[in-house]
């Protein structure tokens, strides 16, 4: 079997906060947040892996750590057979031509003092992909048209564009170096519904035309369900369930995935739907719960869940989840409403 384009094993990212001077004198411990905790997953060439979870679950950190925009604390990252996690800086820089990112906020991620031609042309200059100014401009013009903008836009500045158009500029910048792998970090979350649909269409067309592979990060289950081939669900830094999109949407097994699916309002549903109520808020990642991290909000939690963290179990082809009570095959929606 061919090696996946990207595989991540035991990836962990810990942020350490330094206590204040007073805190240090009083011997307070260093604060630690395990934003990404022992994540293993792989992405096949040409597929879209959706990464879903609520704010603070570590999904963006995972995406950025994979590209080494944040340095991993532990764990391995292999891209196309190359161990990316140990590459020295100059080789990593060259690698980034092949691994790119599209950011969520089209207002914050474009330099307001550079023209579109400069912004989109920068990766070409950094990687020495174009010979001379004329060729740079030609390549930039080609990609700008590919993302649905016009060459007349090249000499304008970001503030002259709407949110949707700016997102197109960000996409052009990510694609101009002809990468193979893109981390799409909530690329449509800041956009209005009608513009969101335009960008989703664009991203799927580009993927097909340019043979791209996406790690698509979103909190929106409809978007993930529409686009992805497989879905990974994150909770407090861990992947709690991963599997083919149909399995995750139609028969989610982890209680958190089940809750998430039932919480999404649906246009088709006209009132009166049974919903799994999730108690309380996300616990602080500074002080994560013992055992299974979901136990504080899980309606099925037992003493075992409170003391021991569950290991990943295989539920079907490519379908895995980490939960002590998987064997009982419970459907939370029926459980709770019964």
């Amino acid at each position: 079997m061919a090696e996946p384009l990207l595989s991540v094993t035991g990836l962990t990212k810990v942020y350490r906060g330094t206590p204040s001077i007073v805190g240090r004198l009083m011997g307070r411990p260093t604060l630690e947040v395990k934003a990404v905790s022992d994540v293993s997953l792989s992405v096949e060439r040409g597929e879209i892996l959706g990464l879903i979870g609520e704010s603070g679950c570590g999904k963006s950190t995972l995406g950025r750590t994979i590209l080494r925009l944040h340095e991993p604390t532990r764990g391995g990252i292999r891209f196309d057979g190359i161990d990316v996690s140990s590459l020295p800086p100059h080789e990593m820089k060259a690698m980034r031509r092949r691994m790119q990112i599209i950011f969520q906020d089209p207002y914050a991620s474009l330099n307001p003092r550079r023209t579109v031609a400069d912004i989109v042309g920068l990766p070409l200059r950094l990687h020495g992909l174009a010979r001379g100014k004329a060729e740079t401009r030609d390549m930039v013009a080609a990609i700008i048209e590919k993302v649905g903008l016009k060459t007349a836009h090249l000499d304008r500045y970001p503030h002259q564009f709407s949110g949707g158009q700016r997102q197109r500029i960000g996409i052009a910048r990510a694609l101009v170096s002809r990468p193979e792998f893109i981390v799409c970090d909530e690329p449509v979350s800041a956009l209005d519904v009608s513009i969101q649909a335009q960008i989703i269409e664009l991203l799927s067309d580009l993927k097909r035309d340019m043979g791209l592979t996406y790690l698509f990060i979103s909190h929106d289950i409809s978007v993930i369900g529409y686009l992805s081939d497989r879905v990974a669900v994150m909770y407090l830094g861990e992947v709690v369930e991963i599997g083919p999109v149909q399995a995750i949407l139609e028969r989610p097994r982890h209680p958190y995935t089940q809750t998430l699916m039932s919480a999404v309002p649906k246009v088709e549903a006209q009132g009166g739907r049974h919903r799994v109520r999730l108690m309380g808020d996300l616990p602080s990642p500074l002080d994560p719960p013992s055992g299974c991290k979901f136990h504080t909000r899980c309606p099925l939690a037992t003493d075992l869940c409170r003391s021991q963290s569950p290991t990943s179990q295989t539920l079907g082809i490519g379908h895995h989840a980490s939960c002590h009570r998987l064997g009982e095959d419970l459907n939370l929606q029926e459980e709770v409403t019964a």
């Binding site: 519904v193 009608s194 513009i195 969101q196 649909a197 335009q198 989703i200 269409e201 289950i221 409809s222 978007v223 369900g225 529409y226 686009l227 999109v245 949407l249 246009v267």
Partner: peptide
């Protein structure tokens, strides 16, 4: 147009038709 713009898992593989 607004309703047709909402991506739905049931429409996987089909085109959505955004408002231009």
């Amino acid at each position: 147009g607004l309703l047709a713009s909402i991506p739905r898992p049931a429409l996987r593989g089909e085109k959505i038709h955004p408002i231009t």
